[in-house]
Nucleic acid binder design. Structure first.
Lengths: 257, 257
DNA sequence: GTTGTTGGTTCATTATTTGAACCATTGGTT
DNA sequence: AACCAATGGTTCAAATAATGAACCAACAAC
């Protein structure tokens, strides 16, 4: 693992839940030596990727990230162009909805809307990258990736998040087959306890998954009739975003083609 | 210069004007060896800080940046909380307005609004970091930084952007003195040809500059009466944001104290 | 078919990163 | 007031990772 990778990995420890981290804590979290973490953080701070409180010495994410994200969004307005679709899905479903972008082996949260229709709702942390094997969104992407890629990921380490997480490769492969035929993925408490997820992939022009849109509900609210409605809404939303982004849906995906 | 610094510096070459860069171009821009750039970009790509087009092989900024920027904005909503003030300044002035955050020796663009009141307007690139000695915003910050810091920057390399850029240290120090007494900074074509800038610093709780808000006009439109109006509007906007962020204005700053 | 470009790879040389031991400061406990 | 256990930060020989000149294959232009 190179030095750059180490430095970037430190940024992932910052989240909504843990927005400020001191040197000692970060050292423990990352498992690197204190001198190493200090040097890496100093490098990140010099370029504005993190900033350090002058008094308390804690680090937080820095303004450079805002600038670069802005450049990306000005150039490829993923978030802005998907917003109306996400809002529609939120209103129609009355549940928490989310948009992810695929980056290598993880899904990056881009936008989400937590519903106000119910007192209990699924909460999401904007800082949490999602691995592909455990969530509905992840399965939606995995199912339509090139086989070499999806196999590489399935052969890798499959973390167990809850005791419903599927970590058996052949069971996962069966799931993926189903997702491919239906064009939509589900995960019943596979990533977070009590959460039922439904998600559909968003496709690039070359018919490969680039992200996903989905719904996250408390699994107690997932009745069969709501499930049918949610699946239809989600699939339509994914198609809308795929179209908005100039993508093409592969012919294998679901009954709608 | 460490490896991490090199990797991060590569990201700065991406901007609205140049959103996609190939390996050879990036090698030329950065001045590192091709093998080095390739390895650094691979590291960045593996963590989603950039992504590579599968066909054309060009790199662009990646989704991880959106996630991390989102975490920062959810935690410290610099952009959202300053938006109304920025919009007010835009409407009242009828010119392009901008918000920067200070990160070490540079200002990072966070948000800006280009006016629709005039056919000619100042265009800003969301990707361009601003050095402190040449722009109104930079001078506004420099003037209120701790002297050790501002002196270190003044003693460093002072790039000449136009033939109006002030690069003489003692002239700059006189400017800063004026800025300190007036609480507001100006730059007549110092950073970009034809652009007249007015900006005021935003302060932290410990009365140090954390950013700036300002106006950028074509210098031909900068009449004396508009200048007075723009200065008053800008100063008020900076105070509003300082207050919104829980900051405190140092007693030395301007006549309003 | 030749030429110049591109992205990408290799591996001995070189330079950076690493981490155990260290220090100074702070805040809580007795 | 003395003590202890944290904290952030520094040092430098040893270990490791980064470097870059030379290389290859693929493509486009002429």
């Amino acid at each position: 693992m190179g030095t750059v990778d180490k430095a970037l990995s430190l940024l992932d420890f910052f989240s909504e839940r843990r927005p400020e981290i001191g040197l000692s804590d970060l050292t423990r979290l990352a498992g690197y030596d204190k001198a190493t973490v200090l040097r890496l953080m100093t490098s990140l701070a010099n370029r504005g990727f993190v900033e350090q409180d002058r008094k308390t010495k804690v680090y937080r994410l820095g303004p450079s990230l805002l600038r670069l994200a802005n450049v990306r969004e000005m150039t490829i307005p993923s978030k802005a162009s998907a917003r109306p679709v996400l809002e529609h899905l939120s209103v129609e479903s009355g549940e928490t909805v989310h948009l992810f972008l695929l980056a290598k082996d993880y899904l990056e949260p881009i936008d989400f809307i937590e519903t106000s229709a119910h007192a209990t709702r699924v909460h999401m942390d904007a800082g949490e990258r999602i691995s592909l094997h455990a969530s509905a969104s992840g399965l939606a992407c995995l199912a339509f990736m090139r086989v070499e890629e999806s196999e590489r990921i399935l052969q890798g380490r499959l973390e167990r998040f809850t005791n419903h997480t599927i970590t058996d490769v052949s069971t996962l492969q069966k799931c993926l087959k189903k997702v491919r035929s239906e064009g939509i993925a589900e995960s019943d408490r596979g990533f977070e306890e009590e959460v039922f997820g439904i998600a559909a992939p968003i496709f690039s022009p070359d018919r490969l998954p680039v992200g996903s849109i989905g719904i996250a509900t408390p699994h107690t609210r997932m009745t069969d009739s709501f499930r049918q409605k949610a699946r239809a809404l989600t699939q339509q939303a994914a198609m809308d975003i795929t179209r908005a982004w100039g993508g093409s849906i592969p012919t294998q995906a679901g009954a709608l083609q």
